[in-house]
């Protein structure tokens, strides 16, 4: 239930500085809040509203439009099973049913130990590797029930499933991005051939 912490306020200001208009930073900042708390708290939304200069209702409206933003706590691992056409054709519905059995929760549910939340995902652009799943938005393709069990077992054991590191829910890119120039001349066309 938190506003952004001092480190993240600093990161937020860097993000805002990348855009000609502060409001453009809204989605990245919501990701930042989700990385901080695992989901997006009302306090964080109000804080983001202050940072980008809008009303909290507008942040709320934006944050509820996009499915990655969770407004209540989810498990450490968000396990998403794609069930769109290509995956469905190759057994995704059955895989999802298996996942429900394996985790003991229905779609949308979180395991009692808070480890896993099961989601049904929309097309993840991995149709050539159908059926596919994501754990905290890291891909696993050509997933059979056996491989699914292996991924869950590895995560439960605290090891990287199939050698792929899976940071906690909310963490997306860990890369530090360049800072764009704030030079006002960049708003005008440049001519290098006269």
């Amino acid at each position: 239930m938190a506003r952004l912490n001092p480190t993240n306020i600093e990161r937020a200001r860097e993000v805002i500085a990348r855009y000609p208009q502060p409001r453009s930073a809204m989605i990245p900042l919501l990701h930042l809040a989700q990385e901080q708390d695992g989901h997006i708290t009302d306090d964080a939304k109000a804080h983001i509203a202050e940072l980008v200069g809008v009303m909290p209702a507008e942040v709320h409206g934006v944050s509820t439009f996009y499915e990655m933003f969770k407004h209540e706590d989810v498990g450490r691992y968000l396990v998403g099973v794609c069930t769109n056409l290509s995956c469905m054709l190759l057994g995704a519905d059955e895989l999802l049913a298996h996942a429900e059995d394996k985790l003991g929760v229905k779609v949308g549910g979180t395991t009692p130990d808070g480890s896993f939340t099961l989601e049904q995902m929309q097309c993840l652009a991995a149709c050539g590797g159908a059926p596919c799943i994501q754990v905290n938005y890291r891909y696993f393709e050509n997933v059979t029930p056996e491989r699914f069990d292996g991924v869950i077992a590895a995560l439960s054991a605290g090891t990287d499933p199939e050698g792929q590191a899976v940071p906690p829910h909310g963490t997306l890119s860990r890369v530090s991005l360049p800072h764009p120039s704030t030079d006002a001349d960049r708003e005008r066309p440049q001519e290098i051939h006269s």
């Binding site: 009302d42 939304k45 109000a46 009303m55 909290p56 209702a57 709320h60 409206g61 509820t64 439009f65």
Partner: peptide, 22 residues
Amino acid sequence: GDPLIDFVGRGDHTEINTFPDQ
């Protein structure tokens, strides 16, 4: 100039609402 209500949610679950407690 009081954007205290906005669309919340998406698609056929779109609703109008305020920010919680505001």
